[in-house]
Amino acid sequence: MIETEQLTRCYGSLTAVDSLTLRAEPGQVLGLLGPNGAGKSTAMRMIAGFLAPTSGTARVCGHDVRRNPVAAKKALGYLPEGAPSYGEMTVREFLSFIARVRSVGGDKGYRRFDEVISRLQLEEVLDQPIGMLSKGLRRRVGLAQAILHNPPVLMLDEPTDGLDPNQKHSVRMLIDAMARQRTILISTHLLEEVHALCNRVAIIANGRLLADATPAELERQSRYHGAVSFSAQGSGVSREMLARIPEVASVEVDPLDGRVTVFPREGKPILEEVQTLLRTQNLEVSEIQLERGRLDEVFRHITTSAHPGPAA
């Protein structure tokens, strides 16, 4: 479990993290989502014990990071941003060092070591210096380091940043597989990652918590939630007729590809009405879709709104 309580961090006059109160439970993958410079990394660094909070505190599995930092760090696996590691060491030497510091030893330790190596597919590069490895491999070494002691709490700062699509996929599979019994906090600015991984999202901007909800709840806030979009030939003709449906609030046509989006009034279901109308008009519809809502739009709306403050 990770809890933060009024966690605050100032750099001189700049407040990087402002009274952040969060809570992540076992089984949850909480995504810390925010624009660059929102304070995601700073918040994580305080939870990890690398930075001292200016005020407030954080707890990892009940261990206060200010009063009992070593116990908190024992319960935590942490992948810092950019996955820093000692470039002159080989993967084996580096992971052995981590195992020793974290007292992962004995037969159990060896088994765990092999398990982690095979899980992250590092067998082939075990004896190569980390500095010579590609970005993706280095990230995997960083992940191996974070999960080596089988921690109940895992914190990953932009775990898929700079990886190619295949590597992203395998890292997400890994996180997904580990999510069941653990508390996982990941930071990202990729919305697709939220969809793929998180069962809860905390949006922060300018160091403040702006939203804390499930991805579905956030999507429901979107203007697009419940909207129907379709591509059809000659669809421009039907635009006014669509607008005449009582449940429809507005109709928009994409000027580039001519795709029509029909927005409902106040969450009213409109799919059937739209389909009926299209059928009666004998329009050739190539594709039609009920929109779930667009996270990017909600994200933009929340992080750029004029009155930032705790919401949702």
Binding site: R45, A48, F50, V70, Y78, G82, P84, S85
Partner: peptide
Amino acid sequence: SSGTIELLLSLPVT
């Protein structure tokens, strides 16, 4: 300068 201090200080050592 290489950023490994973040790793070192997040390990369970004082």
